[in-house]
Design a protein around this nucleic acid. Structure first.
Length: 598
DNA sequence: GGCTCACCTG
DNA sequence: CAGGTGAGCC
């Protein structure tokens, strides 16, 4: 709890009149970054800590006014609204709030709060590189951000209504009282400046004391030149609007924050279940998919945009079992029945579980390696198709505790994408409007890209676009992603070459005896680089690719080919053909956000 | 010319 | 990890 908040709470006057929920939300948010396990970046932590500085002074202001309890109350209300608005314009610190708030906000959604999504603001997150702070949207990932967005949308909506009413009254004024038209209509129109401020003042006044409000408003009444009846109507309508807004704010906060507080105290962070964050059209296509229809192999041109029906029917079945991985078993997630408020227009709300599940299970039956042009036979011949044993209530998720022992497996990643949106309060993942798409790559995206490197060393820009659905691709973004993978490759080849030379020095003769296993020093180095924290279970296929790379380097060096300046090129060519399909789970928008947390 | 890549550098 | 560069490809 921030000192300011404590100060305010201890105030005898405020203590009686001020709802503690005004304070705790932000206090919790402030203390969270330190207590919460999620590693917030320094920048974000600083931003989170900015909460008390932006919020509490307003509260202090009301604490300093000792005249009347009603004034206290009035200003407290105003501070409350201001705090909310300020809080909404602050970065969401998604990893800090994480999943804990989603239950709280789910309640809000269950109340059927429908909010237009038009005026979303993209909170800023400091982005590395280029020295430019690029805009990063929360992608609706953080429930907190969602909640804030909802509130903001509601406030904006109400504000618009108020403005409309003001305009109406100005018209009434024009027709009703021509003598006072000029002066009256001037006043009736919204004054220049921040309309939000005006709204806040009106709201706070009306909310704090309906009986007193109109009187207090006399001084600065917008409709001062209007006939009494019009003024009365104006006040009544303003009051109604203000009350409506107050109810919206109150209900959201009272349901969200208290629960959040208890959640924050939990030691273990849970991984939320990403929904299939396919774009709307993709999802619509998915709904039409025949069961067991599979997406085209990754390397098929236009695979991701094309309907699954176009996939070659004779394509070899692939099994997710090739991942041979498992979720860690913590944090079984309950499915939420909350309807998502973010289903795109025209798209039916959540599909029936069984229907979607069967579709998605079929959809998921493709393995990972079919695109591999010459993968080792051992990796290509997997067992028969096994339905993913995933259903809403039994999805196993990793936790911070279990992560070390049981990293999230590729199969797990794939499974995550199968869960429908809207089940975990993250329904917005179903489709992202352009406003929800980030214009910059985040550390979460970097981490995701690193994990993707286990599957693909040479991703095409098309592939990247299909796996970073929450990113608004531009030439710059594409270049950056490609550059990332270029850097990954660079590191990879350097390490492998180093290992190959070392093996040669150690007297290894036969390249075929070289193997990269999970015990290998080479693997440890690579895993440390791409999978720091061991969050992810490296697919066996990557070990095979690494083994082959190592052998190629070994053979080349042994044969003295490294005298040729371009001796690595043949190796690159070989390795470039070993890319695998990337688990569908990587397409989940939340994937980036969750990875950002860990 | 635009793009991608590896390579080098900080 | 990003910026710069030159080679190679279309």
């Amino acid at each position: 709890v921030s000192p300011n908040s404590l100060l305010l709470l201890s105030h005898p006057m405020v203590g009686r009149s001020l709802d503690s929920t005004i304070l705790f939300p932000f206090s919790q948010a402030v203390t969270l970054p330190q207590e919460y396990e999620c590693g917030a970046s320094p920048g974000e932590e600083a931003q989170a800590l900015a909460f008390p500085r932006t919020c509490s002074p307003a509260l202090m202001t009301c604490a300093g006014d000792r005249d009347q309890i009603s004034d206290q109350h009035l200003q407290a209300k105003r501070a409350r609204v201001e705090s909310i608005i300020q809080g909404m314009s602050l970065p969401p610190t998604p990893q800090a709030f994480g999943t804990s708030l989603e239950a709280a906000f789910r309640h809000q959604r269950e109340r059927g709060s429908e909010v237009p999504w038009e005026s979303k603001r993209k909170p800023r997150v400091l982005q590395q590189g280029a020295g430019a702070a690029k805009r990063v949207a929360p992608s609706g990932g953080s429930p907190h951000a969602e909640g804030c967005q909802q509130l903001k949308e509601q406030l904006c909506f109400l504000e618009k209504q108020l403005r409309r009413l003001q305009e109406k009254f100005s018209q009434v004024c024009d027709s009703a009282d021509t003598a006072q038209t000029q002066e009256g209509s001037k006043k009736a129109h919204p004054l220049p400046g921040n309309p939000g401020d005006r709204l806040d003042k009106d709201s706070a006044t009306a909310i704090s004391d309906p009986r007193k409000g109109p009187e207090k408003d006399e001084d600065r009444d917008d409709t001062g030149g209007l006939p009494f009846a019009a003024r009365a109507l104006s006040q009544a309508l303003k009051h109604e609007l203000a009350e409506a807004m107050s109810r919206v704010v109150d209900s959201a906060l009272q349901t969200a924050w208290p629960k959040a507080a208890s959640h924050f105290l939990q030691q273990h962070r849970r991984l939320t279940v990403p929904g299939p964050d396919a774009r709307r059209e993709d999802f619509a296509a998915a709904r039409c998919r025949k069961p067991l229809a599979r997406p085209s192999p990754r390397n098929t041109p236009g695979a991701l945009g094309s309907p699954e029906a176009e996939a070659p029917s004779g394509a070899p079945a692939k099994s997710p079992g090739s991942h041979a991985g498992s979720f860690s078993s913590k944090g079984v997630r309950k499915s939420s029945q909350a309807p998502s408020m973010s289903y795109p227009l025209g798209l039916a709300a959540p599909i029936q579980d069984s229907q979607l599940l069967s579709q998605l299970l079929g959809y998921s039956q493709h393995g990972l390696w079919s695109s591999s042009s010459h993968g080792s036979p051992s990796s290509l011949e997997r067992g028969p198709l096994e339905p993913l044993n995933l259903h809403w209530g039994t999805v196993k998720l990793r936790s911070s505790v279990m992560r070390q022992q049981q990293p999230l497996s590729p199969a797990g990643m794939e499974g995550l994408a199968l869960l429908p949106a809207g089940r975990d309060g993250c329904g917005e993942l179903l489709s992202l409007t352009p406003r929800q798409m980030q214009e910059a790559l985040t550390p979460g995206h970097l981490k995701k890209a690193k994990l993707m490197f286990f599957f693909t060393r040479y991703p095409s820009s098309t592939l990247l676009k299909t796996y970073f659905l929450d990113v608004q691709f531009s030439r710059c973004i594409t270049s950056q992603l490609i550059k990332w993978f270029s850097n990954f490759r660079e590191f990879y080849y350097i390490q492998v070459e180093k290992s190959a030379r070392q093996a040669l020095l150690e007297g290894v003769v036969d390249a075929g005896t070289l193997r990269v296993s999970r015990d290998s020093e080479l693997f440890r180095t690579l895993n440390m680089h791409y999978n720091k924290g061991n969050d992810f279970e490296v697919p066996g296929r990557f070990l095979e690719v690494a083994t082959l790379t190592l052998q190629e380097f070994f053979s080349a060096v042994k044969a003295g080919k490294d005298a040729d300046p371009s001796w690595k090129k043949p190796i690159y060519k070989i390795i470039s053909k070993l890319d695998s399909d990337i688990p569908e789970g990587f397409k989940a928008v939340r994937c980036s956000q969750e990875l950002f947390c860990s």
